[in-house]
Design a protein around this nucleic acid. Structure first.
Lengths: 162, 162
DNA sequence: CCGGAATAGTTGAACATTCAATGTGTTTAA
DNA sequence: TTAAACACATTGAATGTTCAACTATTCCGG
């Protein structure tokens, strides 16, 4: 690399504000979910994705990419959620390497119990702080970054709650 | 709670895009730093904050709030960085409860070695994907959220690199 | 000056994530 | 048809984070 393209003042300011806002927001949401539902936010996302799909069942690899998780992380997480009785593992009928993760009735109930508090926190700490225009801007910015980094698997967004 | 104020379609879309972009970006930066410098991004932030301050020394609690870290996390992190010889702990002369963390010459060298690659990644995966206008928008959005969540400690931003 | 409350920082245990290695099943191409 | 390459998922070890104690010190009201 010949010479580094350092951040200018505007970029520097944005980057630090972004890091700060992100950590504060994510820490807050994580703590809220941990207290009220006993799971971290990443586990909540897994439950959400399963809840939105017909049969409440997905292949592990599809679940991983839709929840933006590594395979290994998902495997550990599903093991943990299985112990809680919120997810059940099943064999995949069409590919014997595969595994299916199915959201149980208990898991769905737990998700529905946790959702209102979580959505309220997201609204309070994020959307209530932004104008409508900023919500749209944040969406466009996030899409640009996600597209660049190959996050298309998480789209299109099913019509669902949080 | 009477009834939940669910997210509307626009908010839903923004929220998911945001979560996706964030995880992809942060995972990418973390892996880049881990590979090239052997530390996670949170540790890098600690080194940066120390490097910007006169004497390259801060009280633990000030370092924690400027790096958006819990005290516990910082304590563990500093222990780890101390083993690497990049930080040295000192007693605080004015408050015997206190502890100072000082960036060593080796730590500064390690930071300077890691910075170009890290900045390049931030630029490639974030700023190169955004227009100038979007950079400003993201800064304003982040500021609004950070201010709401009490992140003033990370401001004002010293004039420094990344 | 004393004693209780608050503050600074650390610690260990429990939990989450990463990384590399492994086992198993499927696909591909000679 | 078979061997090599690839894909799916899991595992255990190492690392990082959280949470709830815990020690030590300082602050503050009487």
């Amino acid at each position: 690399m010949a010479h580094t393209r350092w951040l200018d003042d505007e970029e520097q300011h944005t980057w630090r504000a972004f890091l700060t806002a992100n950590r504060l927001l994510m820490d807050r949401l994580d703590r809220q979910l941990q207290n009220e539902a006993g799971i971290p936010h990443t586990y909540y996302e897994i439950l959400v994705r399963l809840s939105e799909v017909p049969g409440r069942t997905l292949r592990m690899s599809q679940l991983a990419s839709s929840a933006m998780s590594s395979r290994s992380r998902l495997s550990h997480a599903v093991s943990r959620l299985e112990e809680a009785g919120w997810i059940r593992r099943r064999e995949c009928p069409t590919d014997r390497r595969g595994a299916l993760a199915e959201l149980t009735a208990e898991g769905l109930a737990a998700l529905e119990a946790a959702a209102p508090g979580h959505v309220e926190a997201v609204r309070t700490h994020l959307f209530d702080q932004l104008s409508r225009e900023q919500v749209i801007q944040l969406g466009e910015i996030s899409e640009a970054v996600a597209r660049h980094l190959g996050g298309e698997e998480a789209w299109p967004l099913p019509r669902a709650r949080c």
